[in-house]
Design a protein around this nucleic acid. Structure first.
Length: 584
RNA sequence: GCCGAUUUAGUUUAGUGGUAAAACAAGUCACUCGUAAUGAUUAGAUGUAAGUUCGAUUCUUACAUUCGGCACCA
C-alpha cells in the first residue's frame, strides 16, 4: 500500500487537495471553520467545525462534486507571506486559525495560500493550480475530537486521497477493496474460525472447532519454546480480590476499564484484566535465593477488559482474550541478558511465522504526566536508560514513543498493521521496578540481605486471539499445513467404486495424527474440488480408479493446479515432515 | 464512550407504504460422475420496542448489533 506522506510529489498533491476540500466545504457551508488538514500515509484529511451540523456520506458526494467544479475552473494557487500580526488580523474571525497562529514563534514568516476567494493558513508547498487535483476520492467521514481530546468538541473529519492520474487512483481503490477481503472478521466467518452472538454478549467471540485447532497448535508451539528457556507454566484463576488490584495500582488506573466488581460474603472480586498480580503472588509463595533467579512464570491466561464499544474489532480486540503472558523475576545484573533473551525469542518466533512487516517501539513515560505514571523519577530514568542500552546492544531499530509506557514501567512493543484499521501491538516486553516493590517481593542475595527483584513482563504471541487474527490476514486464510484445521481432504472420484479405498486412506492418515476429512458426499469431483479450494484445505487427495488399481494416491496442493501421483507412505512422510518442521 | 452509517433466510445480496426476490448452503429425489459449481424439488428471513398510518420490512423515535473513523488500549 502506498505511503502518501513519504512520497514528495503525492504529498504536495494531497496537501493541495485538502485545501480544495476546504474550499468546497466553505462554498457549501459558509459558516464552516477549519482546524487542520494534514497529509497522512493514507492520503489526507481535514478537520472542520460546522457548529452542530454533521456531514453524512451523502453530503460527501455533494462536496466531491463541488471540488470537481472548482478544480475544473483551473484556479491558480498563490502563496502569500504574512507577519504574525498580519496573520492574526487576516484570520481574526477564525478561532482555530488564531489558535494555530498564536502558537507560532514571534519572528516566523507565516504563509497562506489563496485560490480564488478562498484563503487558508498553510506552510505549503502546494501545486500551482487546482486543475491538477482531478484524481481524488473522498473516502470517509467521521467525528474527531478537537486536539484529540475526548473532553473537547467533536469536529467533522473528512478523509480523502489524491493521485496524479486516474489509473493509480483506481488501483488504490481496488487495493482498499482487497484489504477488506483479507479482514480477519470476514475470513473468520467464512472459514468458521470464530463466531459472535448478541445473546452471548458484545465483544465476546467464541472459537469454533476450526479456530480452536489453530489455537491449540499455537499454544503448544509457544509453550514448547518457553519450556526450552526454563519457563514454568502455571494456571491461575480468572478473577481476583479487588485488594489485589489496589495493591498493584491497576485499580486506580483502570477500574473504569474493568468489569465491575462483585461483592459476595465479605469479599469483593473482579474479573482479572491482566495476570501480573497473580504471578507476583506465586513468586511470593516461598522464599527465594538469588541462585534460583531468574524465575520465569508463564501462563496462557484469559483476561477480561471492558473495552469501549467503539474499540471492539473481531478477535483483534475483544472484551475477553487470552494472553501468552509471562513474568520474569530477575536480579539487576540479569536484566540485560533476560531482556535480550526475550527479544531474541520474539525475533525467532517472527521468523518461524514469516512475520516481516513490523517495527519496534520503545514506549517511555511522559515526565509531565504526574497522574498516569508511578512517580519515581530515579526509577524511571534508570529503567528507560537500561532499556535503551539493551536495545542498542542488540542492535535492533526502534522509535521512541513518549507517553506510551505502562504506568509501572517502560516497554518495548512490536507493532504490526492489520488489513483494516490502525496499527496494533503484537508482542510486548516491559521492564518493571514498580510492582515488585508494591507487592514487597524479595529474594535472599549472596550477602544474606533481602533484595527486591526486577520483573520483566512479556507476551510473545501477544494474545492468541489477536495473533490468530494476524495470521488469518497475512495468509488470507490459507494457513500453513501445521496450523490448518483440515490438513488433508480426501475426495473419492465416484463413491460407488472408490469410497472403500478412500476410507482406507482416511483411516491411515488419521492413525498418523493427520487432520483429515473424507468428503463422502454424493457429488461430482469438480464440486468437491471447488469446496476444497474455497475452504483452503492444504491438500486435496483424489482417489479414483487409477489410484485404486495402483494402490497409490494423487494429491493436489493448495495454490497449485498440478496433480501428483505418489505412494501412500511417501505422501505421509512428505506431509509429516512438513508438519514437524512447521513449514510456513 | 463520541460522530456517521448499518441491520432482510445459516451465508451473500435484491426489493417494496398493500402477497418479500434470488444465489449459495441445508433436506428430498434423479444422475454415478477424474480436478473450481449436474438437474429437479422442499423448507427457511425483514434486530427489538414504541409511534405515525386503514395498512409499516419500508417513514419517525428509542434501544441493540455491526461497520468506518475519533478517543481509549495495563
Amino acid at each position: 500500500m502506498i505511503n502518501i506522506k513519504e512520497n514528495e510529489k503525492l504529498n504536495t498533491l494531497n496537501h493541495s487537495c485538502a485545501h480544495l476540500l476546504a474550499h468546497a466545504v466553505k462554498n457549501l457551508y459558509p459558516n464552516a471553520k477549519f482546524w487542520v488538514g494534514p497529509v497522512i500515509e493514507e492520503g489526507f484529511y481535514y478537520d472542520i467545525d460546522l457548529d452542530d451540523e454533521s456531514i453524512s456520506e451523502e453530503t460527501l458526494e455533494k462536496i466531491s462534486k463541488e471540488m470537481k467544479k472548482i478544480a475544473k475552473n483551473d484556479r491558480l494557487i498563490k502563496r502569500i507571506e504574512l507577519s504574525k500580526e498580519e496573520a492574526l488580523e487576516l484570520f481574526k474571525d477564525d478561532p482555530y486559525k488564531i489558535d494555530l497562529i498564536e502558537n507560532m514563534p514571534e519572528d516566523e514568516i507565516i504563509s497562506a495560500y489563496k485560490q480564488d476567494d478562498f484563503i487558508d493558513l498553510c506552510r505549503g508547498p502546494h501545486v500551482n493550480s487546482t486543475k491538477l487535483l482531478k484524481n481524488f476520492k473522498l473516502l470517509k467521514v467521521s467525528g474527531a475530537y478537537y486536539k484529540g481530546d475526548s473532553n473537547n468538541k467533536v469536529l467533522q473529519r473528512i478523509y480523502g486521497i489524491c493521485f496524479d492520474n486516474p489509473e493509480d487512483l483506481e488501483e488504490h481503490l481496488k487495493e482498499l477493496e482487497e484489504a477488506k477481503e483479507r479482514d480477519h472478521r470476514k475470513i473468520g466467518k467464512d472459514l468458521e474460525i470464530y463466531m459472535t452472538d448478541d445473546l452471548v454478549g458484545r465483544g465476546l467471540p467464541m472459537f469454533l472447532p476450526n479456530g480452536y485447532i489453530i489455537w491449540q497448535e499455537l499454544e503448544n508451539y509457544i509453550k514448547e519454546k518457553e519450556r526450552k528457556l526454563d519457563y514454568n507454566h502455571v494456571k491461575t484463576p480468572c478473577l481476583g480480590n479487588v485488594e489485589l488490584y489496589k495493591t498493584s495500582g491497576h485499580w486506580d488506573h483502570y477500574k473504569d476499564d474493568m468489569f465491575p466488581s462483585m461483592k459476595l460474603d465479605n469479599e469483593e472480586f473482579v474479573l482479572r484484566p491482566m495476570n501480573c498480580p497473580h504471578h507476583m503472588m506465586i513468586f511470593k509463595n516461598k522464599l527465594h535465593s538469588y541462585k534460583e533467579l531468574p524465575i520465569k512464570i508463564g501462563e496462557i491466561a484469559p483476561d477480561f477488559r471492558y473495552e469501549a464499544s467503539g474499540a471492539l474489532k473481531g478477535i483483534e480486540r475483544a472484551r475477553h482474550f487470552c494472553q501468552n503472558d509471562a513474568h520474569l523475576f530477575v536480579t539487576l545484573d540479569q536484566i540485560k541478558d533476560q531482556f535480550k533473551e526475550v527479544v531474541d525469542l520474539i525475533l525467532e518466533v517472527y521468523k518461524d511465522f514469516n512475520i516481516t512487516n513490523y517495527h519496534f517501539e520503545l514506549s517511555l513515560r511522559d515526565p509531565e504526566d504526574k497522574v498516569k505514571y508511578y512517580q519515581d523519577d530515579k526509577m524511571w530514568d534508570e529503567a528507560e536508560n537500561m532499556l535503551r542500552k539493551v536495545l542498542n546492544g542488540i542492535g535492533i531499530e526502534y522509535t521512541e514513543k513518549i507517553g506510551e509506557a505502562a504506568f509501572y514501567g517502560p516497554k518495548l512493543d512490536v507493532q504490526i498493521r492489520p488489513a483494516v484499521g490502525n496499527e496494533v501491538t503484537l508482542s510486548t516486553c516491559q521492564l518493571d521496578f514498580c510492582l515488585p516493590q508494591k507487592f514487597d517481593l524479595t529474594y535472599i542475595d549472596k550477602d544474606g540481605e533481602k533484595k527486591t527483584p526486577v520483573v520483566i513482563h512479556r507476551a510473545i504471541l501477544g494474545s492468541l486471539d489477536r495473533f490468530i487474527a494476524y495470521l488469518l490476514e497475512e495468509t488470507k486464510g490459507a494457513l500453513p499445513l501445521w496450523l490448518s484445521p483440515v490438513q488433508v481432504n480426501v475426495i473419492p472420484v465416484n463413491n460407488k467404486y472408490h469410497l472403500d479405498y478412500a476410507k482406507e486412506i482416511y483411516e491411515l492418515l488419521r492413525e498418523k495424527n493427520i487432520r483429515v476429512n473424507l468428503d463422502a458426499r454424493d457429488e461430482k469431483l469438480g464440486y468437491k474440488m471447488r469446496e476444497s479450494v474455497t475452504h483452503k484445505n492444504p491438500y486435496a487427495l483424489i482417489i479414483g480408479q487409477n489410484e485404486v488399481d495402483t494402490n497409490t494416491i494423487s494429491y493436489r496442493k493448495y495454490g497449485t493446479d498440478e496433480t501428483v501421483n505418489i505412494d501412500k507412505n511417501e505422501f505421509i512422510d512428505l506431509i509429516k515432515k512438513q508438519i514437524e518442521t512447521k513449514e510456513f
